[in-house]
Amino acid sequence: MANNVSEATRQAGPSIREMSGDYPKVRERTFWSVLSDDKYYKWLLLVPLLLVLIIFMLYPLLYCLWYSFHEFGMVKAATFIGFENYRDVLRDGEFWLALGRTGIVLVISIGAELSIGMAVAVLFNREFKGQNPIRGFILLPLLIAPLAVSMMWNFFLQYDFGIVNLVLGLVGIPKMSWFAPGVGLYTIAAISIWQWTPFSIFVLLAGLKSLPRDSFEAAKVDGAGPWYTFRRLTLPNLAPLIMIIVLLRTMWLVRLFDPLYGTTRGGADTELLDWQIYRNTFVYFDIGRGSTLAIISLFLTMIVCGVLFNQLMKALSATSE
């Protein structure tokens, strides 16, 4: 369609066209007119993005793959060792521990965020006075730097003078050391839950507001109880949104790093996968092993997200029927 517009008019702009009112019939295929053909134009627009993707996706990926097969400690030249790194990592108990902890944090955080989010969303699904400012207040934590959030909570949860321990003391609960081994992991999960529950609340609330009204009225007429309605009507309708929350939160939680830095620094049995990659690469300068861990982590994320993505697609097509 666009190549109907001639080169001459394009250069002259609309003003001359308005005066003369006629279009030149003969068109030459100049460089620009070829490029502005739909077929090429759409790719022309993508050139910067493709460059960025090649530099920032392909290059790091190939680099990590390459060095995961090498022993490379930055000091001497890399030597090819085949699958040695992978074997070492998979035999290393620390790797499995970090993987397990990442799994625990994932399950706890997403589970808690979804259930609290759902409860609050159902409760908030109504018009009430002052709903906009209240909505604003609840959204506040979402955009704060995760590092700032974790340092803030680190301060509140201090053993001696932390406000949490003091308030708990009022009710007679003895002081807790919140970042001790065995507890720290759950504290970190809780911090992340505090920051991200508002996300679940408002995604689910958006879903609740857009539910088809007539089927709910029909259910009411048929005498369905509230729990039955929730399970059979509300939940299936919200399935795609729940999948979106799970997918996005998985993507973010797998690379949880800042909250660790702001609290335990990977100590006290809280080392997660991303921290282990950081420690191997940038503290021990073992590029080979770090790359191996990064590749494994990427591989696992891709599998999990691929499965979730498929589920999301299934849920989407199920609700549109």
Binding site: L53, M57, C64, V254, D274, Y278, I287, L293, L298, M302
Partner: peptide, 20 residues
């Protein structure tokens, strides 16, 4: 989809090569 999948990359995958 390829574009969005860069978001799934563990931060370290890009950090190591770019650090070097």
């Amino acid at each position: 989809f390829v574009t969005i999948s860069t978001r799934m990359f563990p931060a370290a995958v890009a950090a190591i090569p770019f650090f070097m």
